[in-house]
Every structure is written in C-alpha cells, then in structure tokens.
C-alpha cells in the first residue's frame, strides 16, 4: 500500500517536473517561463521527496525530506523574484500578448530604486546603458 502510494507520488512529481520543463521550452517570454519553472518544479520536487520518504519510511529520512521541502518552498520564490527583477531591469522584452505593464517607467535606472507613485522620465533616467 505504502509502496504503491509512494510510486504514485513520485510519478506525479515527475509529471509536474516534465510540465515545468515543457513550459520553460514552450512559453513565449521570460516571465511566463518563470511561472512554469518556479511553481510546477517546486510542487514536483515536493511530491518526489514525499514519495521517497514514504518509500524508505525512516525518521532520519523523513527529517531530511521535510528540510528539503521547506527549503525549496522558501527559496524558489526568492530566486524567481531576484531573477524577474534583474531581467526586467536588463530590459528583457515582454510577450506581445501582454495586455498592460504597470512597472513601466517606475524604475529609477540610476539608483535602482523602485518608485510606487510618480513616474520617472524614461528619457532622462534611462541613460545608464543596461
């Protein structure tokens, strides 16, 4: 019973990882690719780890698996946030189907500060080549 459940969890996790990789290969722009890579991959790692813990069924193993899952769930969004911010800063283009971009003009390119209300004049602030 536990073996079957563990095999099912591992298969599901691998399926989610495959979907994540397919999304990274197929999606049209960087940000939609990051959607696919952070979430599905996090869920995939979590499911595979749970399956492995169930397969071995030992305390030490379970502890390690819980540590990995907590770590991955905490760090994957942080990595995505840093990469997304850096990529937006570096001027990676958005997909042409993107309906609106609330971030446009809110970055001060010289100080790397993000402003909440007033817009920065793109022509004067954008002279730092990125």
């Amino acid at each position: 019973m536990a073996q079957n459940l563990s095999a099912l969890l591992i298969l599901l996790g691998a399926l989610f990882m495959f979907i994540a990789a397919l999304g990274v290969a197929r999606m049209p722009d960087l940000f939609t690719r990051m959607h696919s890579s952070t979430k599905s991959a996090t869920l995939g790692v979590g499911l595979i780890m749970l399956g492995a813990a169930l397969h071995f069924g030992e305390i030490g193993m379970t502890m390690r698996v819980v540590a990995i899952i907590v770590f991955v769930f905490l760090t994957a969004p942080v990595a995505a946030h840093m990469l997304g911010r850096a990529a937006y800063f570096a001027g990676v283009p958005l997909w042409e189907g993107t309906l609106s971009d609330a971030l446009r003009g809110h970055y001060d390119r010289r100080t790397h500060r993000l402003l909440s209300d007033e817009k920065v004049d793109e022509t004067s602030a954008g002279d730092l080549a990125v």
Binding site: T42, F73, A76, P77, R85
Partner: peptide, 28 residues
C-alpha cells in the same frame, strides 16, 4: 505575502517599491 503569491501558479511577484506600499506582480 510575496512568497505565497509566487507559489500560487498564475501569479509571480516581481518587486516591492522602495517605500513598501506597492507590490508589482506578473499575472498570467
């Protein structure tokens, strides 16, 4: 909140403004 938004598929938090009033997210 930013971590939870990033983990909910369909939304991805990009950055917080310097005065911590606005969170910019990318929604699919």
């Amino acid at each position: 909140l930013a971590i939870l938004i990033s983990l909910t598929p369909g939304t991805l938090s990009l950055d917080v403004s310097a005065d911590k009033k606005v969170l910019y997210i990318h929604a699919m």
